[in-house]
Design a protein around this nucleic acid. Structure first.
Lengths: 334, 334
DNA sequence: CTGAAAGCGCTTACAG
DNA sequence: CTGAAAGCGCTTACAG
């Protein structure tokens, strides 16, 4: 099955390649009706399909972007990607998905390959490594937007949840429901990953705002593998908390696992609130009060910011941080 | 920031483009040590980065593939994609993600764009439309593999769950646990989507195998929007079922919503088993008995099949259907 | 061991 | 209204 090229079409239609190209790019302005019809027919007869690669080489645009997430298996990432893909589809762009798994080396390899493939821009959940590499890209005015995580020293548009507010609202909700012994359960704080640190801050701010003494023992963080024993310890403190804020869906999962194992009653024995909406929030008994991220809006915003950068040639050096509002979904768990 | 090309490197290093190209492609066989060192240095000094697009144009391989799913938001799709991406990453391939949303027109547009961009192959959850288009691709020996759905008349490798077996096992499990009034709850049967039809068959086979009279009223299917009223009707049948097989995770969700609303007790009032593992199976009370698909294995298999096709030039016309075993995860809901 | 030349499949000034 | 020519940035026989 020999590939048919623009030269074949030109020859069969008895015109030049240039003319066929004009036709393909809908520049009919000065094209004779007959010529147009002849080309159109020839294309159909030969089953010609333009090779976009060749066009991209010439035009310096591939109409594809890269998206680097930590792990597509995380619900938030999936939703963000879906939103990105939707806005890309409208503009006839395609998206290449990369899982960096929080490994800077993987991230680096992807960035380099994506550039080598000449993608028009990149949206990334940055690992926090590769600062120099990103700085180079920014300096070269390469379109980049960050999402979910803020990296010091890299001047590029960033889309973020108002994490402090999310945690603040969570604590506030607990306080309003009569709790004052409120613990925070978080993934590890090492590497100072933005959402984790900001949510911790929001928790502390709220505690202070509501004049609750800060109890360091109530702040627990750790890897999934140690979560069960950490919760066990927390619950068996001399002065145990009466409510727990799970700062993301994975931690919430661990908490619910513990609760089930120990047959604790929510909210009577322990109040629970989680940041991140979860699929089973409504069907769980009791239904789970959560703070949702507007993940689709955030993904769409990231995509739109990227397109603005792609489409405007001039260098606009105003890197901004776009904060999105969390939404409290009150249910029955606290 | 002027792009530096192979010509620049050649000039600065005082060699020809050919030699630089040899260097880039690691064909050092006959290359002088000095030349090699000189080129290497020049590349670093200039910050040269090969343009893969240009290479692809010449070499007729883009080292990227396309994956068309119904919707990346479905957990199964996400897992399959993750597996595909992992095997692609090993081979330094990239993957473009497309959501067809079960719309043949969207699917068609994606297929055409992917081809125009010269992707080396496509893995698709086919919508069932575009049969002629796929047939053309297959005829042209274009690498395609299907997953999750079987399309009559298209001779291409397909990766599928043994859906009949999944439903059979589900019914069998219920029977062994003492149930005989077993209903099946499914998404719509229109369009004869493979998993739905096969799971229905598996249900019927099992019913027959265990000599349970087939009660058509126990087979209910419908869209999500009508699911609640359909379940209501089912539960209020004169002779209501004592157990329900939810044939996928979405339907299970609807069932659990109903159960919660009506405060029914599982498994005492109604036994529940679902096909598709769900994230909350363990933490739900009672924990949910499910039949899991080996989604990662299936994704990896699809990717490997695609690579076999991409790598072997000759036409191997043995389209096969690869069936994967479902796994029963017994918990407490039936 | 290295270079000149052609070519991959397009687009785009420019000329007529 | 249309065509010849150059060029995008590589690779690859082929010659020497």
């Amino acid at each position: 099955m020999k590939k048919v090229t623009i030269a074949d079409v030109a020859q069969h239609a008895g015109v030049s390649k240039s003319t066929v190209s004009q036709y393909l790019n809908q520049r009919y302005d000065y094209m004779g009706e007959q010529t147009k019809a002849r080309i159109e027919e020839t294309i159909n007869v030969l089953g010609y399909r333009p090779n976009i690669l060749a066009r991209s080489l010439k035009q310096k645009s591939t109409t594809t972007i890269g998206v680097i997430v930590a792990n597509i298996l995380h619900v938030f990432s999936t939703q963000v990607i879906r939103a990105i893909e939707d806005v890309c589809n409208e503009k006839d762009f395609h998206v290449i998905i990369c899982n960096a798994d929080n490994q800077p080396e993987k991230e680096k390899k992807y960035i380099e390959m994506l550039r080598a493939k000449q993608v028009d821009g990149i949206i990334a959940f940055p690992t926090g490594g590769n600062v120099a590499l990103y700085q180079d890209l920014v300096r070269e005015n390469y379109p980049i937007v960050f999402i979910d995580r803020l990296i010091e020293g890299i001047e590029t548009n960033t889309v973020l949840l108002d994490n402090e507010k999310a945690a603040f609202i969570a604590v506030e909700t607990l306080v309003k429901n009569g709790y004052s012994k409120i613990a925070l359960l978080s993934p590890p704080f090492e590497h100072a990953i933005t959402p984790r640190m900001e949510r911790l801050n929001g928790y502390k701010n709220a505690i202070q705002e509501y004049q609750i003494p800060l109890n360091e023992e109530y702040i627990v963080s750790g890897k999934t593998s140690e979560m069960q024993s950490l919760i066990e310890k927390l619950i068996h403190l001399k002065d145990p908390p009466k409510a727990i804020l799970a700062t993301n869906d994975h931690v919430l999962m661990e908490l619910l696992t513990y609760v089930k194992k120990k047959q604790m009653r929510i909210p009577d024995e322990i109040g629970v609130i989680g940041i991140d909406e979860v699929s089973f929030a409504d069907i769980y008994s009791p239904s789970l009060t959560t703070i949702a991220q507007p993940s689709f809006e955030m993904g769409a915003k990231a995509a739109n910011l990227l397109f603005e950068r792609i489409q405007t040639k001039e260098i606009i050096n105003q890197a901004k941080v776009y904060r999105f509002e969390p939404t409290l979904i009150e249910r029955e768990s606290c």
